[in-house]
């Protein structure tokens, strides 16, 4: 009896919550919707590039009802909209971590679409934003594990043992990683470390058995400062690295799948256009980039005696396997 009563009670709460969520998530229909785009204060051509691609995508639909207003995170802190304002923008789109953190700090009731930031960072920020998560969504910059593992399968068909060194950030994803590995048909060899000092040893141990190293960004393990250690150690062991950025490949990784700012900007534009066409204008679900590129370091491949194939061909085949998942 008690269990049944609880269930009824829970169901009522759920309906109420759902109603609330719908009320918040949908964005009031108006003739022209003001979309406030907040970009990181830091000067980087990447944000401009993404913004240009976003504008270009919107311009593809000339009669769209979206009015873009752009400000930097600093301007937003100084003179951006506040909770107390009578008129708020219809939607806030943030580009980058800095912008997302600044906007979320204001706890505006406005729906907010955080883009161009790593998944782990979004998770941490959204967690900090507390009960207002319902009005939040995101477009991550990093790639889903399944896509990274599939690229390894496509480019290095004989190398089915993928080694990874997980730091505190990436350890949270272990379950997801294992699921992705099962789907992609690779065997994972994991080393977990909690300190950058353990990195070189962990690389040696994991590559004793693994055929290729998958580097996933981690504030501690894989970042700009450890790239040299990672690339030199793996190269001496004769094992290739699958990196996560174009720069990592230039530095010496064998290959990487990544999204350019233009690709991200284009997807933001598409999501905004899709939103305005729906009656309740829901935010898109938080997700990974739809468009991506593959880069291969031919010199490193050559030196390791590996023939991974052409980058554009790999990207096309990778996109095709994405489509199989979401027909």
């Amino acid at each position: 009896m008690r269990a049944g009563g609880g269930l009824v009670c829970a169901r009522r709460q759920w309906i109420a919550l759902a109603a609330l969520a719908v009320a918040f998530v949908s964005w009031p229909a108006a003739a022209a919707t003001e979309v406030l785009v907040v970009i990181a204060t830091q000067q980087s051509p990447a944000y401009e590039e993404a913004l240009t691609a976003l504008r270009a995508r919107l311009a593809d639909v000339p009669d769209n009802e979206l009015a873009l207003r752009v400000m930097t995170a600093e301007e937003f802190s100084d003179s951006g909209p506040r909770v107390t304002d009578r008129k708020l923008p219809g939607l806030v789109v943030t580009l980058g971590t800095d912008a997302a953190a600044t906007v979320l700090r204001q706890k505006l009731p406005t729906p907010t679409y955080c883009t161009f930031l790593p998944q782990a960072t979004y998770a941490a920020l959204a967690n900090g934003a507390g009960g207002e998560r319902a009005r939040l969504s995101a477009l991550f910059l990093d790639q889903p594990f399944i896509r990274q593992l599939r690229l390894i399968r496509l480019a290095l068909p004989g190398r089915t043992r993928v080694g990874m060194v997980l730091g505190p950030d990436s350890q949270r994803h272990e379950r997801g990683l294992r699921r992705a590995a099962a789907v992609a048909g690779v065997v994972l060899r994991l080393e977990r470390i909690s300190d950058e000092k353990q990195l070189v040893g962990a690389l040696h141990r994991v590559l004793d058995d693994a055929d290729v190293l998958l580097a996933v960004p981690d504030a501690l393990v894989f970042n700009r400062h450890t790239a040299q250690s990672v690339l030199l150690t793996t190269y001496r062991l004769g094992k290739p690295v699958a990196g996560y950025s174009r720069a990592y490949v230039t530095a010496g990784a064998l290959l990487a799948v990544y999204s350019t700012p233009t690709q991200i900007g284009r997807q933001i534009g598409e999501e905004l256009l899709a939103m305005q066409n729906k009656a309740d204008r829901p935010l898109p679900a938080a997700g990974y980039p739809r468009y991506f590129s593959v880069e291969v370091n031919e010199r490193v491949a050559h030196s390791l005696g590996i023939e991974p194939g052409r980058a554009d061909d790999l990207a096309r085949r990778l996109a095709a396997s994405d489509t199989e998942d979401n027909p």
Partner: peptide, 24 residues
């Protein structure tokens, strides 16, 4: 712990495996 930033994906890195370091 510091948040991972998009800069991690965008920043340029020095070339570690330069032509003279790559083995035959």
């Amino acid at each position: 712990p510091p948040l991972l930033s998009e800069q991690e994906f965008l920043a340029e890195l020095p070339v570690v495996l330069t032509a003279s370091r790559l083995a035959q």
